[in-house]
Amino acid sequence: MDAIKLRVENLNLFFGNKQILKNINIDFPKNQVTSLIGPSGCGKSTLLRSFNRMHDLSPDAKIEGKLYLEELDLYDKKNSVTNIRKRIGMVFQKPNPLPKSIYENLSYALKIHNYPKNEIPELIENALKESFLWEEVKDELKKPAVKLSGGQQQRLCIARTVVLRPEVILMDEPCSALDPISTKKIEELILKLKKDFTIIIVTHNMQQAQRISDNVAFMYLGELIEFDTCDTIFNHPKNELTQRYIGGHFG
Rank of each mutant, 00 (worst) to 15 (best):
A61S: 10
D179P: 09
R87S: 15
L178F: 08
T242V: 02
K66M: 11
R53Y: 06
L106N: 05
I20Y: 02
L69C: 11
I212C: 02
V81C: 11
G251N: 03
I102E: 01
L193W: 10
A177V: 00
I20M: 10
L128T: 03
G65A: 07
I190Y: 05
K5N: 13
L57F: 11
P99H: 11
V8A: 01
K129H: 06
D214F: 03
M219V: 06
N205T: 12
T198Y: 04
E70M: 11
I190D: 04
S176Q: 05
A127T: 07
P97A: 05
K86H: 14
L193K: 06
F92Q: 04
M171S: 03
F15V: 07
K94Y: 12
E119G: 00
F14N: 14
R7A: 12
V137D: 09
S107E: 14
E70H: 13
G38C: 05
N96V: 00
I201Q: 00
S213M: 07
K30V: 00
Y245N: 00
P121R: 10
D27N: 13
G247M: 10
P59G: 04
P95N: 10
S176Y: 06
S58Y: 12
I84Y: 01
P59L: 01
F227T: 03
T183Q: 14
H113S: 08
P95A: 14
V91L: 04
D139Y: 10
S213T: 06
I200A: 09
K129W: 02
A177Q: 10
L189C: 07
P180M: 06
V33I: 15
Y220W: 11
P99C: 15
D76G: 15
I124D: 03
D172M: 03
D179M: 11
A159P: 06
D27P: 06
E9P: 01
T232F: 07
H236M: 13
Q210F: 01
N83K: 12
I4D: 01
I225V: 07
Q154P: 01
L72T: 15
I212W: 04
A159T: 05
I158D: 02
K195E: 12
G247H: 14
I102W: 05
L21Y: 05
V162T: 12
Q152T: 08
Y68A: 12
R211T: 00
R53D: 08
G89F: 04
S176E: 09
L170M: 01
N126A: 13
P237D: 11
L13R: 03
G38V: 06
L224M: 09
I4V: 15
R7D: 09
L123Q: 13
E240L: 07
E9G: 01
M219H: 01
N83A: 15
K117C: 07
Q153C: 01
K22Y: 14
E71K: 15
V163Q: 07
N25I: 00
K192C: 08
S107M: 05
H55Y: 09
S40Q: 07
Q153I: 02
K30L: 09
L221R: 13
K30Q: 14
I212Y: 01
N105F: 01
I112W: 07
Q93V: 05
